[in-house]
Design a protein around this nucleic acid. Structure first.
Lengths: 202, 202, 202, 202
DNA sequence: CTCTAATCGAGACGGTACGTCGCGTCTTACG
DNA sequence: CGTAAGACGCGACGTACCGTCTCGATTAGAG
């Protein structure tokens, strides 16, 4: 995802309150919006993001093509809207992982969070938006990482963040794959913790 | 990248000989082909793959639009053609990394290889084709990994391959970034070796 | 203008009284209506009819878009409403011109009438609605002409009406043009009378 | 037709040779162009210009929608292309009418010309493009009139041109109407000559 | 040193998706 | 009831890029 692509919400401290309905004026608007988001999630499980057309989303949502643009400027914006809050949470949970102290606990919290929204995250990480999600995750993590005082490390900060995000991403994506039997959270957390180990060694 | 996307060369044992001239028929054809490849590499350094149009490539190559299709079925095929050989080599060098024995040596060989084709790999890993390259690298590595007797490990093979490829990919991409001063090969190899450590621990 | 285009009022004997308030129910309605008419007149002086959008009219009138449709089915209907009365009068004054007797007097009356509503007629004849006005004038004139006993003439009635209307229309439009200095009514009447001469010769 | 509308060819002395095919490169292009012109003429006989959509023209021509724009920038441009040459001729024949000498001969020539292209002119003058044609005819006539030394007249030049064009237009349109039996050229010429009489009187 | 066939430039074409605009209808809530 | 506010279905708009396709013109490499 290039520099000129619409970005996911820039704030990690995004209001998690369920009071996001800034303007619940018209019931129809809400219905259309819901339909679009549902349609998008349904499609993203089936094909990569760039192969999904706005027309498909609109058709799947039972909504007129032009109506899509009354809600989102592009399908990337819809992805943002769908994923922004979740991503914000995930990044907030991901950052402490970079710290040495209590990494295991942070990792477990992260896994538990993903598990609680398993369906959505399966769509996001294993569907066609995976690439965009990885990029976005990396971008937000980097933002956060530079703000926090980067602990002295044997690794460049940039590389450390990139590797952390990649390992987390790959592990979660693997976890959410239906190919193997269900893996308990504790095991995933353990695995991830172990994978991240060398990143924080002195 | 989905299942219906054109693939890079499917063989790892792809002939690495410099005798790739599949059709050395006409000198004109060879000239056009070279121009197209050069133009593509020039463009991919500047913008993401999906923003590059066939018309742009042709214009940059000083070649007529339709001529492009006399050489490649799509721009992805051109990417394949440009990257296939390199990718084949890289995978061949990447696979032994999965083995326990002599990982450090393998890692160094890998780094040295990339360093010897620094310009090309910079374009491939940091340009607009990065996503496609990562996917392709992963795919080929997986193919190879399942063929080789997978050493018993505390990690799922799938996850191990995914993490290895990701770490290698991120490290190389970071290495090729112009943001920081030149990093000597030995240091990169050391870093990579250390990052890969937990993947092969008992 | 085709057969399926909204028509100006079909009656020439349209009540010319200033008591057009078809629905003097609500004071607000009247205010909206006035605002719409004024806005329309203001716009038609500036650009052709087909380039004026309902949204523009509503905005210019300081009225909500949907409100427009509570008053008029389309912008053509508004044109009708604005022009119908005037057109009715004009046609009523135009018809006697077709007669041989006392044409000069009729022509003068016609000119005087237009002069008395100079601003409005300038908008109607020289603004973007000119084409529609010409068509409508012709249509109504023809209706009237066939009803009146058509005096025997060397000209086909259809052609005579068309030419009369055209000459009147062109002369008035020229008269109302700001390009040349003010022309006295008598001179215009004289010109028009002379132009119409051959239409009524034996 | 406003000031920002595509104009018909500005030259009256437009090359009347049948060698208009400036670039007969591709036979397909010529075929598409012919189909578009024919489709346009077919449609313009049935409905007003502004009700004809580009999509209709393309469909009628059996040509893809986008192909239309490879030939014309808008449907008005197609009208231009269809009518430009004819209009050029007509104006060239119309201008001498403004002269006093030999007006009758000029009028006859004009009528004969229209008669020779009766089908086309019927479409142009009585179809949906009538308004545009009138405007264009007027515009070109005015251009020509100001260039020629305007004979001293009791009429403003502007008004004289407007009235001449209107009378010619209405007469031709009436002549081409199927409502009445065929009228011989001589009679039309005579009528027109007589109608134009007062315009050139001293 | 031809001559024949591959390759090229030029560009029209059908096709699909894009994003915009204006229309007229509708819902909702207010006064 | 009339209004403001605005979402919605509809459908035309004009654009962009795709990949296919005729056309000659040229030019390389085989005879």
């Amino acid at each position: 995802m290039g520099a000129d692509t619409p970005k996911l919400c820039d704030t990690v401290a995004h209001s998690p309150d369920p009071t996001t309905p800034s303007s619940p004026r018209d019931a129809r608007a809400a219905r259309s919006n819901d339909a679009l988001r549902a349609a998008f999630l349904a499609l993203i499980e089936r094909k990569p993001l760039e192969q999904i057309t706005v027309r498909e989303i609109a058709a799947e949502a039972g909504v007129h093509y032009a109506t899509f643009f009354r809600h989102y400027a592009a399908k990337e914006a819809l992805l943002d809207d769908v994923a922004a809050e979740q991503i914000g949470w995930l990044v907030a949970l991901t950052v402490p992982v970079l710290d040495q102290t209590d990494r295991r606990t942070a990792v477990e919290a992260l896994c538990r969070y993903v598990d609680e929204h398993r369906t959505l995250w399966t769509a996001l990480l294993r569907g066609g938006a995976a690439g965009a999600m990885r990029d976005e995750l990396l971008r937000l993590s980097r933002n956060v990482a530079v703000e926090r005082a980067p602990a002295e490390s044997w690794l460049s900060l940039d590389l450390a963040v990139a590797c952390s995000v990649s390992l987390i991403f790959e592990t979660l994506a693997w976890w959410l794959a239906p190919a193997h039997g269900p893996v308990p959270i504790e095991q995933v957390a353990h695995t991830l913790d172990r994978l991240l180990l060398p990143l924080h060694a002195t």
